[in-house]
Protein backbone atom coordinates (compact mmCIF):
# COMPACT_ATOMS: atom_id res chain seq x y z
CA UNK A 1 0.00 0.00 0.00
CA UNK A 2 2.83 2.36 0.81
CA UNK A 3 4.16 1.77 -2.71
CA UNK A 4 0.74 2.61 -4.10
CA UNK A 5 0.65 5.79 -2.04
CA UNK A 6 4.12 6.77 -3.31
CA UNK A 7 3.02 6.18 -6.86
CA UNK A 8 -0.15 8.13 -6.21
CA UNK A 9 1.93 11.02 -4.94
CA UNK A 10 3.85 10.88 -8.24
CA UNK A 11 0.46 11.04 -9.99
CA UNK A 12 1.01 7.81 -11.87
CA UNK A 13 -2.05 6.87 -13.88
CA UNK A 14 -1.84 3.16 -13.07
CA UNK A 15 -1.74 3.82 -9.34
CA UNK A 16 -4.72 6.11 -9.63
CA UNK A 17 -6.66 3.42 -11.45
CA UNK A 18 -5.67 0.90 -8.82
CA UNK A 19 -6.88 3.17 -6.04
CA UNK A 20 -10.12 3.70 -7.91
CA UNK A 21 -10.59 -0.05 -8.21
CA UNK A 22 -9.88 -0.54 -4.51
CA UNK A 23 -12.02 2.22 -3.02
CA UNK A 24 -14.50 3.06 -5.77
CA UNK A 25 -17.32 0.98 -4.31
CA UNK A 26 -16.77 2.22 -0.79
CA UNK A 27 -16.72 5.87 -1.72
CA UNK A 28 -19.61 5.45 -4.14
CA UNK A 29 -21.78 4.15 -1.27
CA UNK A 30 -20.89 7.17 0.81
CA UNK A 31 -21.85 9.40 -2.08
CA UNK A 32 -25.03 7.47 -2.59
CA UNK A 33 -25.92 7.80 1.09
CA UNK A 34 -25.68 11.54 0.92
CA UNK A 35 -26.91 12.23 -2.60
CA UNK A 36 -29.52 9.44 -2.58
CA UNK A 37 -29.38 8.90 -6.37
CA UNK A 38 -26.92 7.22 -8.69
CA UNK A 39 -26.41 10.05 -11.14
CA UNK A 40 -25.44 12.57 -8.48
CA UNK A 41 -23.41 9.92 -6.67
CA UNK A 42 -21.41 9.23 -9.85
CA UNK A 43 -20.83 12.89 -10.42
CA UNK A 44 -19.71 13.61 -6.88
CA UNK A 45 -17.54 10.51 -6.80
CA UNK A 46 -15.61 11.54 -9.90
CA UNK A 47 -15.06 14.98 -8.39
CA UNK A 48 -13.92 13.39 -5.16
CA UNK A 49 -11.40 11.16 -6.91
CA UNK A 50 -10.01 14.10 -8.86
CA UNK A 51 -9.52 15.95 -5.61
CA UNK A 52 -7.91 12.90 -4.05
CA UNK A 53 -5.49 12.50 -6.96
CA UNK A 54 -4.64 16.18 -6.88
CA UNK A 55 -4.09 16.55 -3.15
CA UNK A 56 -2.57 13.24 -2.15
CA UNK A 57 0.88 14.53 -3.07
CA UNK A 58 0.56 17.31 -0.51
CA UNK A 59 -0.22 14.94 2.36
CA UNK A 60 2.02 12.86 4.56
CA UNK A 61 -0.24 9.83 4.31
CA UNK A 62 1.62 6.56 4.52
CA UNK A 63 -0.98 4.29 6.07
CA UNK A 64 -3.99 2.65 4.49
CA UNK A 65 -6.34 3.44 7.40
CA UNK A 66 -5.38 7.08 7.31
CA UNK A 67 -5.73 7.12 3.53
CA UNK A 68 -9.16 5.57 3.77
CA UNK A 69 -10.34 8.05 6.41
CA UNK A 70 -8.86 10.97 4.41
CA UNK A 71 -10.59 9.85 1.23
CA UNK A 72 -13.89 9.42 3.10
CA UNK A 73 -13.59 12.91 4.52
CA UNK A 74 -12.91 14.38 1.09
CA UNK A 75 -15.85 12.51 -0.41
CA UNK A 76 -18.25 13.60 2.34
CA UNK A 77 -17.07 17.20 1.92
CA UNK A 78 -17.70 17.00 -1.81
CA UNK A 79 -21.19 15.66 -1.13
CA UNK A 80 -21.87 18.43 1.33
CA UNK A 81 -20.61 21.04 -1.10
CA UNK A 82 -22.93 19.70 -3.74
CA UNK A 83 -25.87 19.62 -1.33
CA UNK A 84 -25.01 23.11 -0.12
CA UNK A 85 -25.14 24.31 -3.70
CA UNK A 86 -28.65 22.93 -3.95
CA UNK A 87 -29.71 24.62 -0.67
CA UNK A 88 -31.56 21.60 0.62
CA UNK A 89 -31.32 22.35 4.28
CA UNK A 90 -33.49 25.33 4.80
CA UNK A 91 -36.66 23.78 3.54
CA UNK A 92 -38.55 24.22 6.78
CA UNK A 93 -37.90 26.26 9.85
CA UNK A 94 -38.46 24.46 13.12
CA UNK A 95 -39.64 26.79 15.86
CA UNK A 96 -38.67 24.45 18.66
CA UNK A 97 -35.05 24.67 17.77
CA UNK A 98 -33.30 23.96 21.00
CA UNK A 99 -35.36 20.99 22.00
CA UNK A 100 -33.54 17.90 20.83
CA UNK A 101 -35.30 14.66 20.26
CA UNK A 102 -34.06 11.84 22.43
CA UNK A 103 -31.96 9.14 20.76
CA UNK A 104 -33.86 6.40 19.02
CA UNK A 105 -34.52 3.28 20.99
CA UNK A 106 -36.09 0.01 20.08
CA UNK A 107 -37.00 -3.20 21.80
CA UNK A 108 -36.50 -5.17 18.65
CA UNK A 109 -33.26 -6.17 17.01
CA UNK A 110 -33.47 -4.39 13.69
CA UNK A 111 -31.88 -5.72 10.55
CA UNK A 112 -28.95 -3.81 9.10
CA UNK A 113 -30.67 -3.65 5.75
CA UNK A 114 -33.74 -2.05 7.35
CA UNK A 115 -31.61 0.48 9.15
CA UNK A 116 -29.81 1.49 5.97
CA UNK A 117 -33.04 1.72 4.06
CA UNK A 118 -34.58 3.84 6.81
CA UNK A 119 -31.73 6.30 6.55
CA UNK A 120 -31.88 6.34 2.77
CA UNK A 121 -35.63 6.95 2.93
CA UNK A 122 -35.19 10.10 4.99
CA UNK A 123 -35.53 13.47 3.22
CA UNK A 124 -32.24 15.04 2.08
CA UNK A 125 -31.89 17.52 4.92
CA UNK A 126 -32.80 15.05 7.68
CA UNK A 127 -30.62 12.34 6.21
CA UNK A 128 -27.59 14.58 5.83
CA UNK A 129 -27.73 16.04 9.32
CA UNK A 130 -28.46 12.62 10.86
CA UNK A 131 -25.55 11.06 8.93
CA UNK A 132 -23.17 13.78 9.95
CA UNK A 133 -24.25 13.83 13.57
CA UNK A 134 -24.83 10.13 14.29
CA UNK A 135 -22.61 8.28 11.80
CA UNK A 136 -19.74 10.70 11.21
CA UNK A 137 -19.81 12.12 14.71
CA UNK A 138 -19.83 15.85 13.91
CA UNK A 139 -21.25 18.41 16.33
CA UNK A 140 -24.06 20.76 15.40
CA UNK A 141 -21.66 23.72 15.09
CA UNK A 142 -19.50 21.80 12.63
CA UNK A 143 -22.53 20.64 10.67
CA UNK A 144 -23.85 24.20 10.54
CA UNK A 145 -20.52 25.43 9.21
CA UNK A 146 -20.18 22.65 6.67
CA UNK A 147 -23.70 22.99 5.33
CA UNK A 148 -23.96 26.77 5.65
CA UNK A 149 -26.92 26.61 7.98
CA UNK A 150 -27.54 27.73 11.53
CA UNK A 151 -27.01 25.46 14.53
CA UNK A 152 -30.73 25.65 15.27
CA UNK A 153 -31.56 24.38 11.81
CA UNK A 154 -29.11 21.53 12.25
CA UNK A 155 -30.71 20.60 15.55
CA UNK A 156 -34.21 20.79 14.15
CA UNK A 157 -33.23 18.66 11.17
CA UNK A 158 -31.76 16.06 13.52
CA UNK A 159 -34.84 16.10 15.70
CA UNK A 160 -37.11 15.61 12.73
CA UNK A 161 -34.88 12.86 11.40
CA UNK A 162 -35.09 11.04 14.71
CA UNK A 163 -38.86 11.46 14.88
CA UNK A 164 -39.22 10.07 11.39
CA UNK A 165 -36.90 7.19 12.11
CA UNK A 166 -38.83 6.42 15.30
CA UNK A 167 -42.01 6.28 13.28
CA UNK A 168 -40.33 3.96 10.84
CA UNK A 169 -39.05 1.76 13.67
CA UNK A 170 -42.47 1.74 15.29
CA UNK A 171 -43.96 0.61 12.02
CA UNK A 172 -41.46 -2.17 11.75
CA UNK A 173 -42.01 -3.19 15.37
CA UNK A 174 -45.75 -3.26 14.84
CA UNK A 175 -45.32 -5.38 11.77
CA UNK A 176 -43.04 -7.74 13.71
CA UNK A 177 -45.51 -7.85 16.61
CA UNK A 178 -48.41 -8.62 14.29
CA UNK A 179 -46.54 -11.41 12.56
CA UNK A 180 -45.61 -12.90 15.95
CA UNK A 181 -49.26 -12.84 17.15
CA UNK A 182 -50.41 -14.57 14.01
Amino acid sequence: MSKLIRELKKKQSKAQHRLFQLYGDYLFRICFRYMNNQVDAHDVLSKSFLKIFDHIGNTSIADEIVLRAWMKKITINECLMELRKRKLFFMELDLIVDKEEAPITSDEKLLEEDLVNMILDLPDGYRTVFSLYVIEGYKHEEIATKLGITVSTSKSQLRKARLQLKEMINKIEKQTYNTCIR
Binding site: P103, I104, T105, S106, E112, E113, L115, V116, I169
Partner: peptide, 13 residues
Protein backbone atom coordinates in the same frame (compact mmCIF):
# COMPACT_ATOMS: atom_id res chain seq x y z
CA UNK B 1 -35.04 -4.08 27.30
CA UNK B 2 -34.62 -0.88 25.35
CA UNK B 3 -31.52 -0.71 23.19
CA UNK B 4 -29.80 2.29 21.74
CA UNK B 5 -30.61 2.01 18.05
CA UNK B 6 -28.35 4.83 16.77
CA UNK B 7 -25.26 2.69 17.29
CA UNK B 8 -26.93 0.08 15.16
CA UNK B 9 -27.53 2.64 12.49
CA UNK B 10 -23.87 3.56 12.50
CA UNK B 11 -22.75 -0.03 12.44
CA UNK B 12 -25.25 -0.93 9.74
CA UNK B 13 -24.09 1.93 7.57
Amino acid sequence: MSELVERDFKKAI
